[in-house]
Structures are given as structure tokens and as C-alpha cells.
Amino acid sequence: METTPGAGTPEPKRTVDVASLKALAHPLRVQILDTISRLGPQTSGTLAEILGESTGATSYHLRQLARHDFLREVEGRGSGRERWWDRPKGSLQIVTRELADNPATSEAAHLVSREFEHHRAAALADFMEHGWLEEPSEWSDSAMVSTSNVRLTAAQLAEVSAKLEAYAAELLAPYRGQGAAEGVRPVQIHINAFPLAVGRPAAAAPRTSSEEKP
């Protein structure tokens, strides 16, 4: 599973190690990382307001994420009492097959993967429920929710996935780093490519709580 804050030029790809994965494996930490990925730099106060948490909780988890290089302090912005945090440039390979199969990290890998997918599904569900009819027409008419079905071999799927990833990076590069500007809003783009569940029931939607321990 990969998540990318983005930049205008090719950026390094970091594969998360065992210690970092275990540090990330807390629902609120995943939520903080996902929120900053979506909305850009935040403080403990702005995150507390967005997520409905206390500033003490968000401040603590921000520091833990920074210890493992998931976040960095924004230089020259804020003060000692109001520190701004952002994602480092580049993409994160958060969950690999090796980490998922390792008994020492499998629980953490599944929690992190489940939390990210829950947030992504919730964002899409919210748009499907409200976006088409309630957003201004210039935004709803510009959106696209599309599904394509095709039969592929594993090698062909790998080729399609790689080309989609490369094309998305090239297409979005000119818009990275726009920050807060008039007319600019957070936009989330999903490109999914995966084999369908044939012969087995689909998994139920996960339900987790920020009280869950890593």
C-alpha cells in the first residue's frame, strides 16, 4: 500500500521498516497522517478541531509520527507553542507482503492497511452521498467515479498498475505544492487496480476506534 503527498519532480520512495510500521499502527496516528496528506500542514490545534480530539492527544501523536519520519516540522512557520507539521516529499510504501506475513508485524500491517482503506472508503461514500447534488456544479461536473472491468494475468495487472502510477505522477506533477490559494480545494483521486474476490465472500467494512492500542 502506497501513499503520496507529491512534488513536482521525481521524489524518493520510502519503504517503511518494522519499527516505523509498529509506531504508525494506531488509528489516530493513521488519521493524522491521512489528514495532513489530504489537507496539507497542520498544528496540534487544527488537527484537534478537525478530528474531534484533544490537543494533548494530537500533540503526542504528532511527536511520535515525527520520531519515525512520517512528519516533519515546517521551518519558519509558527512558534514553539504552535508548531506546524507536514509530510516529507515523496511516497511511502507502508505495507509490504513481507511485513504482512511477518508474525511480528502482521497485526500492525493489517491495522494500518484497514485504517487507510476505511478513510478512503469513507471519503468516497461521502462524495457519493452528498457531492453529486450538493457541491457547486463546477466541482460536481468536474468529478469522475469510474469502474473498469477487464480480465488480466498477474503480469498484465502489474504492467497496468505501473503505467497508471507513472501516468498519475506525471499528470499531477504541475499541481503539487499549490497550497492555499483562491479557488484551490483538497481533491482526492483514487486509481484502484486489483483482482476481484472470486469464490469467497467480500470482507465486511471495518470498524475501529481511536482508543485502540498499537
Rank of each mutant, 00 (worst) to 15 (best):
76 G>V: 03
104 A>Y: 09
98 E>I: 09
80 G>Y: 09
88 P>N: 15
75 E>W: 12
115 E>L: 09
83 R>P: 01
90 G>N: 06
115 E>V: 07
100 A>K: 07
79 S>T: 07
104 A>M: 08
77 R>C: 04
101 D>A: 14
116 F>E: 07
93 Q>M: 15
83 R>S: 06
104 A>G: 14
82 E>P: 02
99 L>A: 10
84 W>C: 01
77 R>I: 03
97 R>H: 13
115 E>T: 12
100 A>D: 08
71 L>M: 10
106 S>V: 03
103 P>H: 14
109 A>Q: 11
108 A>F: 02
116 F>D: 10
71 L>P: 08
106 S>G: 05
104 A>S: 15
89 K>R: 05
89 K>Y: 06
86 D>Q: 07
97 R>E: 15
74 V>F: 01
103 P>S: 06
76 G>W: 00
80 G>W: 04
72 R>D: 05
97 R>Q: 13
95 V>N: 14
81 R>C: 04
112 V>Y: 03
85 W>D: 06
79 S>H: 04
112 V>N: 02
110 H>P: 00
110 H>W: 05
81 R>Y: 01
96 T>V: 00
113 S>W: 07
101 D>P: 05
107 E>C: 14
78 G>T: 05
108 A>Y: 00
79 S>A: 00
90 G>Q: 08
93 Q>T: 15
104 A>V: 13
117 E>D: 03
91 S>D: 12
81 R>E: 01
81 R>L: 04
111 L>W: 13
82 E>D: 09
99 L>T: 11
94 I>S: 13
80 G>K: 14
116 F>P: 11
97 R>A: 13
84 W>M: 09
76 G>K: 00
92 L>C: 04
107 E>F: 12
98 E>S: 11
112 V>H: 04
98 E>D: 13
84 W>L: 06
71 L>W: 12
89 K>W: 01
92 L>G: 09
100 A>L: 08
82 E>F: 03
118 H>T: 10
81 R>T: 00
76 G>T: 04
113 S>V: 03
103 P>R: 12
102 N>F: 04
117 E>G: 00
94 I>N: 11
93 Q>V: 11
101 D>Q: 14
111 L>P: 01
88 P>M: 12
110 H>F: 03
84 W>V: 02
101 D>N: 12
108 A>W: 00
104 A>R: 14
91 S>K: 14
92 L>V: 09
100 A>T: 03
118 H>E: 06
89 K>F: 01
114 R>S: 03
87 R>V: 09
85 W>G: 10
109 A>F: 07
95 V>C: 13
83 R>Q: 13
112 V>A: 00
104 A>C: 07
113 S>P: 04
116 F>A: 06
105 T>A: 03
102 N>H: 02
80 G>P: 05
95 V>T: 14
81 R>G: 02
88 P>R: 12
111 L>S: 05
116 F>I: 11
97 R>Y: 15
84 W>H: 13
97 R>D: 11
113 S>E: 04
70 F>M: 13
75 E>K: 15
106 S>H: 04
